[in-house]
C-alpha cells in the first residue's frame, strides 16, 4: 500500500488551547459570585437551628409588631424564655421575623430544587420520546402548546387551590407549567442531533433506537439541561413566593418568605421590615441562582444565550 502508516504521535495531535470546562467554570465571575451567595443561603437553611434558638412558629402576643433590633424576652411554644434581639423585628403574632426568614430559606430551596429536578426529569423523558418518534410528537407537542398558553401563575394557583395547600401540592403545581419548556428544549436538541452524521452512522451500523438515544443523543442534552434546570430553580422559588404572598400557596403558619411578606402587607407603611427583609433574601437567592445559571450557560453551552 502506498499510504505509509501515519503514526499519531503526541506532537501530531491537534492541540486544543481551550481550558477544560471545569477550569472555565471556576474562572467565571458569575459562577463565583453566584456560587458563593448560593452556598451561604444553603448553609443558612441547613443550619437554621444554630442561627436562632427560637422556632419560627413561636407566637408571642405581647411582643407584636416590634421594630428590627428590639431587645426583649421571647417565648417559644413550650414556654421557655429567651432573652434575644429580634434583629428583623416581629410580626403581627409576635413571631421573630429573623427566625422565620432563616427557616424560610429551607422551603424556598426545597421547592426550587424539587421543581427543577421533577420538571427536568419528566420534560427530558417526554422530549426525547417526542423528538424521536414522529407520531408521538404531533400529539405531545400540541398538548404542550396548550399547556404553555395557560399563564404559569394561573395554572399553578388553580392546581394548588384544587388539590389543597401543601408543600407537595405547591411543588407539583409549579412543576407542571415548567415541563413544556423543558420538553421543547430537549426536543429541539434531539431534532438537531438526529441529523448529525455520527447519529446516522450509528443508525447504519445497526444501533438500536434506545441505545442511540442513550449514547448519542442524551449526552448532548446534559449541559443545556443543567443550565435550564438552574433557571427553573430560580423561577420556581419566585413563583412559590408569589403563591404564598397571594395567600394561595403553602399554609400561612409555615415560615416561607412569601408568607412572611403576605403577613406584613397590612402594616406595611408603618412596619416595612416585615416585607423588606424576606424580600432581600428572596431576591438575593434568586439572583445567586440566576448568576450561576448565566455563568453555567456561558461556559457549558454558549449557543443557548437568550433561549430560555
Amino acid at each position: 500500500m502506498n499510504t505509509e502508516v501515519l503514526p499519531v504521535e503526541d506532537d501530531e495531535i491537534v492541540k486544543s488551547n481551550k481550558p477544560s470546562p471545569w477550569v472555565r467554570l471556576a474562572k467565571n465571575t458569575s459562577v463565583r459570585v453566584g456560587g458563593f451567595l448560593f452556598s451561604i443561603i444553603l448553609l443558612m437553611s441547613l443550619f437554621a437551628s444554630l442561627l436562632t434558638p427560637l422556632d419560627p412558629t413561636d407566637i408571642n402576643p405581647s411582643n407584636r409588631l416590634k421594630p428590627p433590633g428590639y431587645e426583649g424576652t421571647l417565648r417559644d411554644n413550650d414556654g421557655n424564655k429567651y432573652q434575644v434581639t429580634a434583629r428583623m423585628g416581629t410580626d403581627t403574632l409576635g413571631r421573630d421575623i429573623y427566625a422565620r426568614v432563616v427557616y424560610g430559606a429551607r422551603i424556598s430551596l426545597i421547592v426550587g430544587i424539587a421543581v427543577a429536578l421533577i420538571s427536568v426529569a419528566v420534560g427530558t423523558f417526554i422530549g426525547l420520546v417526542a423528538g424521536y418518534f414522529r407520531w408521538v410528537d404531533a400529539i405531545v407537542m400540541r398538548f404542550m402548546d396548550g399547556l404553555m398558553a395557560i399563564p404559569a401563575i394561573l395554572l399553578a394557583i388553580s392546581l394548588v387551590a384544587l388539590s389543597g395547600a401543601s408543600l407537595t401540592a405547591v411543588i407539583i403545581a409549579i412543576s407542571v407549567p415548567e415541563i413544556p419548556r423543558v420538553v421543547r428544549l430537549v426536543r429541539s436538541i434531539v431534532l438537531s442531533i438526529r441529523e448529525e452524521p455520527y447519529v446516522e452512522a450509528a443508525i447504519s451500523v445497526g444501533t438500536p433506537t434506545y441505545l442511540i438515544l442513550w449514547r448519542h443523543v442524551l449526552p448532548n442534552t446534559i449541559s443545556p439541561l443543567i443550565v435550564q434546570g438552574t433557571f427553573i430553580c430560580g423561577s420556581a422559588i419566585l413563583l412559590e413566593a408569589i403563591l404564598s404572598f397571594l395567600g394561595v400557596g403553602i399554609p400561612p403558619e409555615t415560615p416561607t418568605w412569601g408568607n412572611i411578606m403576605a403577613e406584613g402587607r397590612d402594616f406595611f407603611q408603618i412596619y416595612p421590615h416585615a416585607i423588606f427583609f424576606p424580600g432581600i433574601f428572596l431576591s438575593l437567592t434568586v439572583l445567586a441562582i440566576n448568576m450561576l445559571g448565566d455563568g453555567l450557560r456561558d461556559t457549558l453551552d454558549p449557543r443557548m444565550e437568550g433561549k430560555f
Binding site: G234, M261, I275, G279, S283, L287
Partner: peptide, 17 residues
C-alpha cells in the same frame, strides 16, 4: 440579571415605600 431576580412585589413595595 438583577431585574430577573427581584420579584415584582418586592420592587412594588420598595417603590411605594
Amino acid at each position: 440579571v438583577l431585574g430577573f431576580s427581584v420579584p415584582v412585589f418586592v420592587i412594588g413595595y420598595v417603590l411605594i415605600y
